[in-house]
Amino acid sequence: MKSTTISSSLTASPVVTVVRGDSAPGVSRARQAARALTDRLIPAPPPEMADTLVLVVSELVTNALRHGGGVFSLRLTAHLDAIEVAVDDASPRMARMRAPDLTDAGGGFGWPMVNRLARATAITSRRAGGKTVTAFLPR
């Protein structure tokens, strides 16, 4: 699956990037798309904000693969004051906070971290089934 740029305008209209994936290479493409988006923004965000965006994207698409049915669709939207990260997956199960697994099994760290890094998060059910997990980061 390939990433597709829907709009490349850097004016008042939002900049939208879409990436779909069903495997680890899709997660890599999602990270690359996030970095490419920040590279196109004017003014350019500080490097730490770009790193935070890449981390949030990585966590959300990885969670969609691991817990959401194995397929994701990522939409990155650069608004004037925020970057919106929206990840669709096929599972109707809502993301939940859980105690991090401190054994070698891992897990439980991503969703709390996303909630700490984002300005706001939301989970909505989709009419077609599944859900959308959205995080808004300051621009």
Rank of each mutant, 00 (worst) to 15 (best):
T38C: 15
V54P: 00
D39M: 15
R31P: 04
E48H: 14
P45K: 05
A36N: 04
G69E: 00
V56H: 00
L65N: 02
E59A: 13
G70S: 07
V56M: 01
A36W: 05
M49D: 01
Q32N: 13
P43G: 11
L60C: 09
A34M: 07
L60P: 01
A33C: 11
V57D: 01
Q32C: 14
V57I: 03
I42K: 13
V56Y: 02
L55S: 04
D51V: 14
T38R: 07
V56L: 07
A34K: 10
P43K: 08
G68Q: 10
G70I: 05
P47A: 15
P45T: 03
V61P: 06
P45M: 08
D39V: 14
A44M: 08
L65M: 02
P45E: 04
L41Y: 01
D39C: 13
A33H: 06
Q32D: 10
V71I: 06
G69Q: 02
E59K: 13
D51A: 15
S58C: 07
T38N: 08
G68K: 09
R66T: 13
R31S: 14
V71Q: 02
V71R: 13
R35A: 15
L37T: 07
Q32A: 15
S58K: 03
A64L: 07
L55G: 03
L53D: 02
A33Y: 10
Q32G: 15
A50N: 01
T62G: 14
E48V: 15
P45R: 05
A64F: 10
P46Y: 04
P45G: 11
L53C: 09
L53W: 04
V57L: 03
V71A: 07
T38L: 08
A34Y: 06
A33K: 09
L37E: 01
P46N: 06
P47C: 14
E48C: 08
R29T: 14
L53N: 05
